[in-house]
Every structure is written in structure tokens, then in C-alpha cells.
Design a protein around this nucleic acid. Structure first.
Lengths: 302, 302
DNA sequence: TAAAAATACTCCATAGGTATTTTAT
DNA sequence: ATAAAATACCTATGGAGTATTTTTA
């Protein structure tokens, strides 16, 4: 069986062309080097060097093997360097799952921050609904999720980052007291527009409104918040919008965003990863950056 | 220090995603595998796997290292295969030096033969004068020489292959008895045309003619035999031509090639290599092919 | 004969095995 | 409670050292 040791010694010999000097380079004795080179020759079934008084010469096969050995040794060195250089927090590839009601709003702020502070981090982004990315996380296809908490899974660790209040999006024409009255009352008189099944935002909104009856809810179900907001603008109903989305979606003509009277409803945005992951510290660092990105967004809105 | 053993075990673990099964694959016990993987993680300063009850998952870094490890292991396997496959005679790269008065005549016959019988042989050809290729052989820049013997160098081994008779090339107009009279007599009346200094053929011709006096020799000195033959055709003198070159150079208009009366002069064509080379058997095999190439040429001339 | 590599041998580090404990689900 | 990996400990292989012999130029 070939060993890296054999390749290291042989490569030194190929450079030094002298057993003694090669041994010096490797900081071992000449017989030890002879031994390993001989072993390599036996494994390969080929003479690699011509032994002679005036030092040593490579056979044609020896030259080829030396070339290949150099490549292998370089690859191994690179592998070490790679690992060493990335001992720092948050470097290397990281597969991140994000839900659709967070991704488009936070990523424009988050990615530049990450890029600046952790330039060696290579994010692989997967945007999908909570259930999907939870499955991918459990599979090991993803390393980390950015989503709305809570998620219940014993093998997962979660980290809440911040509260994201829900705002009320209503047609500009609609007259309402400010702040908007608390929700159950409001709901009595209006149709609530929601995302299609599967989006956690839909469930959260339903929970917030303490509504279970289908009658008052538009079951059409849009697949993006933008669509919902367009529908609101058209006067088809009202909706709840996460504050995070306000900067983007609030600009829509014909829509007004209202804060809701306390107790202000909100969702919790946070991270989730497998308990077994050894990258916990990295994920906390990541969470800090997400929080700062969110603060940046909030500042922009003012 | 990273070892191939560590990479082999880790790669198995990356595939099996289970310490026990990976150990089975490697035909060792689970603790032995755990030990090596742990060592690798310590050397790299990075967690490569998440340990959990439901088997094992790779960290992002683990995936990268597994990828690199696979590449390294494949390269090493290729290296072994390469060496193994070339345990056969005459395979792999071989740097061959040939003198100019042999190369153009024998190579057209030799190369196809070699290609057919030793398809794994990759020849690197260097054409240069005897002195130059001897130096390159001694340096280790060449492995084998095809040239005119004898060469005197204690550290070299030579193998005579065949005798290559000298023919007399004369202008067609010239009337001479057949076979041509032995040389010293002939020389008395004609100017002998030779290659420039440094070509062994020049020295051999001089020796054959037992001539040392400059007077009768054209000191212009051409650099190729073709030129010399053109000069003969132009009536500027006569020359000695190796039989090997007859097929090519003998076709020239205005030149006639005559065998010389016994004792027919000739040069010895053979091989030379460093005594220390472990490829002696290969070189003998190579010699056989050269001899057969020469026989093929001889047959063509008839 | 002198320099260089191979060989002989001894020692110790480390890989691998067995038995057991710890961990996580 | 149980499967899986880690740990502890022992053994044996083999890598490295010192001393010496063999080779070859």
C-alpha cells in the first residue's frame, strides 16, 4: 500500500538526487529514506532510480512517478491550507435555507454584510417553504435555516433573533383609526387575503387573527406577498404584512400600511440547525449578522 | 501529518455515513477508523463529521475535504495503475538520442515497428551529434542512444546491433571498375567530400580511407548527407555513404552508388546507455527492434 | 580507496484489536 | 433502552535510528 510518507521521501530524492541529502531534507537518516523508497519501488513493481556513486538518477518511470507524486503532495498541502485557513468562523461553503417571506426582504441587506465581514463564506441559498427546508435540514442537504420560529423538532436547535411585527395592509381608500384596532374586531368587517397553503405566514396570520372560520378568508391563496398586496390595492380585501416586507411592498400605489394597536402581533425570526452540528458557534455569529441586517432595514424605513 | 490511511478511512466514512460500516469497508474495526478520522480532524483543526445516533453527517468542510480526498486517492490509484500497467518491457517515456547520420534513415522504419510492438512506449527523440548526445546521456537527460560505435566511456554500456557498410557515391559520369577498388588507391585521384566537423561519419570516413592529409579533403564540410550527395552529383568529388542512407540518398540524379571491394569498410551501429540503468533488458528489446527495422530497410533496397 | 547506498539490528511510536463506557435518540 | 461512537488498554507492525557491510566509480 502506497503511503504519503513514501511519496514525500521519493519526491525529496527526486529533487536532491542523493539519498543522504534527501534524507537531510526530510530530517531523517539515509537508511530510513532508502527503506521507504525501496518500499515504493516494490509496491509499484518498477525501478524508480538508478543508484550510482555520483548520486542518483531517475528512470523514465521515476520521472513520471515524481511528477505525479508532486501533484498529490501539492493537493494534500492545499487541503491542509484550505482547512487551516478556514478555521476562522464562517468560512467555506454553507448551505442556507430561507423561507419565501423572509428571503427577498432580508437578503439584500444580509448578503453585503456577510460578504464584507466573512469574505470566505460561500453561501448556497435554497428558498423554499418551512416544511421543505426543515426536511432538507434534517437530511443534511442544508446546514442552517433562516425562518419563522417556533419549529418543533427534537433534533433541531433554534435561535430566535428578533421579532418582526405584523402591519396591516389596507386599500388607501379605507378609513381606519390609528393605530389600527386589534384584529378580531377588524376582521369582522373585512375579507383577509392570505398566501396559499404551505406558507407559514398564512398560518401565523390565521393564528394572530384568532380566526378559524373559512368564510371570511379568501381561499384563492396567492403564492407571493407582492400578489397579495396588489390584491389589497385593488380593494379585494386586507392582509397582514411583516414589517420586514414593508420597505419593499409598502411602496405599492393604493395601499396603506398601519401599525396595529397593542398588543402588537408579530412573528419571531430565527435560525435552526441540527443539534449535532459542530458549527454552533458559527451559527451564532451568523445570527448576529442577520440581526444587524434587520436593524439596517429598520433604520432605512424611518 | 496527514496520511493516506486517514484519507482512505475518511473517504469510506463519507460514503458509508456510518463508522461501523465504513470500518467494514476498510476491513478494520470501528475504533480503528474512529481513531484515524479523529486524527485527521485534529490535523486539519476542523470538525469533518457530525456524530449522531442515526449515523453520521458531513460538515460543509467535511464535504470539501471528502471531495479533495477522493481526488488525491484517485491520483494515487492512477499512479499505481500506471506503474503496474507499465511493468511490461518498453513502456512509458523514454528519451532517445540519435545521431544525424542514422536518424533520418532508420526512424521511418523503426517508429512504426515500435508503435506496433510497444504501443505504450512514448519516445522523446533528440537528434544531435555523438558528442552532444553522449553528454546528455551522462547527464541523465537521455536514457538511450542510437549511434555508431565504439564510444569510449567507462560508465556506459554499449550494445552493437549491426554493421552498416560504406558505399562509394560517385558522379554517374565517372567510369570505375566494379566493385570499386579499395579506398586508398581510389582516393589518390579524387577529392573526398565530408560532413562538417563534429559528425562521427566524417571521422569514420577519414579512418576508412587511411587519410590524414588535409590536401585531398574538401574542408567546406556540409551539414547533411543530402548536401554532400548533391555536391557529388555536381561532380565536385566523391563521398562515402552508409548503406542505410542508400535508399534515400541513392535516388539522386547524377549519382551512382558502388559497393567497395573487400575488405568492405563499414561502421557499427549500436546502442549505449548508462551502466547503472535498471532498464538494460528493455534496451536489449529495443535493440532487437532496431535490428529488424534495419533488415526491413535492407529488404526494401533489393 | 573512498563515497554512497544497502543491510542488520534494535527501539519505539502508532495502528489495530478487544472490552467497555459514554452519548444521543 | 439501545444503537452508535468514543475511550481505555493491550499487542504487534513497521518506521526510524545506529552500526556495519557492500558496491562502484
Amino acid at each position: 500500500m502506497i503511503t504519503l510518507r513514501q511519496l514525500r521521501y521519493f519526491e525529496a530524492l527526486a529533487r536532491a538526487r542523493h539519498f543522504g541529502r534527501a534524507a537531510d531534507i526530510c530530517a531523517i537518516t539515509q537508511p530510513a529514506l532508502s527503506q521507504q523508497v525501496k518500499e515504493l519501488e516494490e509496491t509499484l513493481g518498477q525501478a524508480l532510480v538508478e543508484r550510482g556513486r555520483g548520486g542518483v538518477r531517475l528512470t523514465p518511470m521515476g520521472r513520471e512517478i515524481a511528477e505525479r507524486a508532486r501533484k498529490v503532495l501539492a493537493d494534500v498541502r492545499d487541503m491542509e491550507d484550505h482547512a487551516r485557513s478556514r478555521r476562522a468562523r464562517l468560512s467555506g461553503r454553507l448551505a442556507l435555507g430561507v423561507i419565501p417571506s423572509i428571503a427577498p426582504y432580508i437578503l439584500p441587506a444580509l448578503l453585503p454584510l456577510l460578504r464584507r465581514e466573512y469574505p470566505d463564506l460561500e453561501l448556497e441559498l435554497h428558498e423554499a417553504q418551512t416544511e421543505v427546508i426543515l426536511e432538507e435540514l434534517s437530511d443534511g442537504r442544508l446546514d442552517l435555516l433562516l425562518l419563522a420560529l417556533p419549529v418543533e423538532a427534537a433534533h433541531l436547535q433554534t435561535l430566535p433573533l428578533f421579532e418582526d411585527p405584523f402591519l396591516l395592509a389596507v386599500p388607501s381608500a379605507m378609513e381606519l383609526p390609528r393605530p389600527a384596532p386589534c384584529l378580531p374586531e377588524l376582521m369582522a368587517g373585512h375579507r383577509l387575503l392570505l398566501l396559499e397553503e404551505g406558507h407559514c405566514l398564512r398560518d401565523q396570520a390565521l393564528a394572530v387573527c384568532a380566526l378559524r372560520e373559512r368564510g371570511r378568508i379568501d381561499t384563492f391563496g396567492a403564492s407571493t406577498l407582492s400578489t397579495i398586496v396588489q390584491m389589497v390595492a385593488a380593494g379585494l380585501g386586507i392582509t397582514l404584512l411583516p414589517e420586514m416586507a414593508a420597505a419593499v411592498e409598502g411602496r405599492t400605489e393604493g395601499v396603506e400600511l398601519l401599525r396595529i394597536a397593542p398588543p402588537e402581533p408579530s412573528r419571531t425570526v430565527g435560525l435552526a440547525w441540527r443539534r449535532a452540528s459542530p458549527l454552533e458557534d458559527d451559527f451564532h455569529a451568523f445570527g448576529e449578522v442577520v440581526r444587524r441586517a434587520q436593524e439596517g432595514l429598520a433604520a432605512l424605513r424611518k
